[in-house]
């Protein structure tokens, strides 16, 4: 390699000196702008002066408790000018080459590699290999230590899931209440009205949150066995999306569909085109795989809404232990 050899020669010839060559301003090895060092220096001076002014302005602005935009703007601009001047100094007021350095070969020669391998393997084998009992015990103790260390590191973090994904706080006869704990009566919603409700005592619960919609003033039937679940036009569906668990927060009134704003799953609760029944929040669009579970409602003697029982299936997104239903 021609350049390399010359480089070596240059290195040997000039070991002592280490300063960069001074180039005349018309040298092509300078940045074009550096051909006018006076001008370049003025730019750097201007940058540093601007930075100084900005930093002083920041100090003053902080002192008088100025707005955040002023504080951040002054120090941000100051840092920028400071850096710009710094960089311009390095770029335009220093001889820029192009310079070069030699690469050294990364890998070692074969003898060195062999020596390393020999030291690692043979010396190790000689010292360790003979003591097979010790080696096995070492591995056993280390392995068991690794396993038991996982107990506090992982198992202590939280409780086992047990059945908690299969149940909510809705119980037989739970009062349907608003976030403020106020019981919901049959007169509370107009047709087309919608309300987020909870079982009494679990207001704000992430898993028990339920969307109450009034679709009519006659009972809503969504399928066989659910003839009594929708009294006086009220239906209640779990508000936890069966896709990724976001609250199904939007009711599209005119088409009678529920929309999850996270990933746009759409659940149909409108009347079926034939017959007298309604859709049971089946997903008609988007990534959700299952209908929103329906909460069976009833109206008590005082006209308050109550749950007949907990949801008949796990609410929310799918998980491994969920049985096929």
């Amino acid at each position: 390699m021609r350049a390399g050899d010359e480089g070596q020669a240059a290195l040997e010839g000039h070991e002592q000196g280490a300063h960069l060559a001074t180039l005349p301003p018309d040298d092509p090895r300078l940045q074009p702008f550096a051909k006018h060092p006076g001008r370049a220096e003025k730019v750097v001076v201007a940058c540093f002066l601007a930075a100084l002014a900005c930093f002083m302005a920041f100090g003053a602005a902080y002192w008088v408790n100025a707005r955040e935009e002023v504080l951040g703007g002054t120090i941000g601009a100051g840092l920028f000018f400071f850096g710009f001047g710094f960089t311009a100094w390095g770029k335009y007021l220093m001889a820029r080459g192009p310079f070069m350095e030699e690469r050294h070969v990364l890998h070692s020669d074969d003898a060195a590699r062999d020596a390393f391998d020999a030291a690692l393997v043979e010396r190790g084998a000689a010292a360790i290999g003979r003591r097979s009992l010790l080696t096995r015990l070492l591995a056993a103790a280390g392995g068991v230590a690794g396993v038991v260390a996982a107990f506090p590191l992982i198992r202590s973090l939280g409780p086992l899931p047990k059945g908690s994904l299969f149940h909510t706080q809705w119980r037989k006869g739970s009062l349907v209440v608003t976030i403020d704990g106020r019981p919901v009566t049959v007169d509370d919603l107009e047709i087309g009205g919608v309300l987020t409700v909870f079982p009494a005592g679990a207001e704000g619960s992430a898993i028990s949150q339920t969307l109450l919609v009034r679709l009519a003033d006659t009972p809503i039937v969504t399928g066989p066995g659910k003839e009594t679940w929708g009294p006086q036009g009220y239906v209640a569906y779990s508000k936890v999306c069966t896709h990724a668990g976001c609250p199904v927060g939007l009711f599209e009134h005119q088409v009678e569909k529920l929309l999850c704003p996270c990933h746009q799953s759409l659940f149909d609760i409108a009347p079926r085109p034939t017959g007298t029944t309604y859709y049971a929040a089946e997903p008609v669009f988007g990534p959700a795989p299952r209908p929103l579970p329906q909460l069976a409602l009833r109206v008590d003697a005082k006209g308050r809404l109550r749950a007949q029982h907990d949801y008949d299936q796990p609410i929310g997104p799918g998980f491994w232990e969920r049985t096929t239903t």
């Binding site: 350049a3 480089g7 240059a10 280490a18 060559a21």
Partner: peptide, 19 residues
């Protein structure tokens, strides 16, 4: 033309500046 220049040889060791 700047990009076309031959690089100086081990430049930071250059002591004898022709200038």
């Amino acid at each position: 033309g700047v990009e076309e220049l031959e690089p100086e040889l081990v430049p930071t060791h250059v002591a004898a500046d022709p200038a």
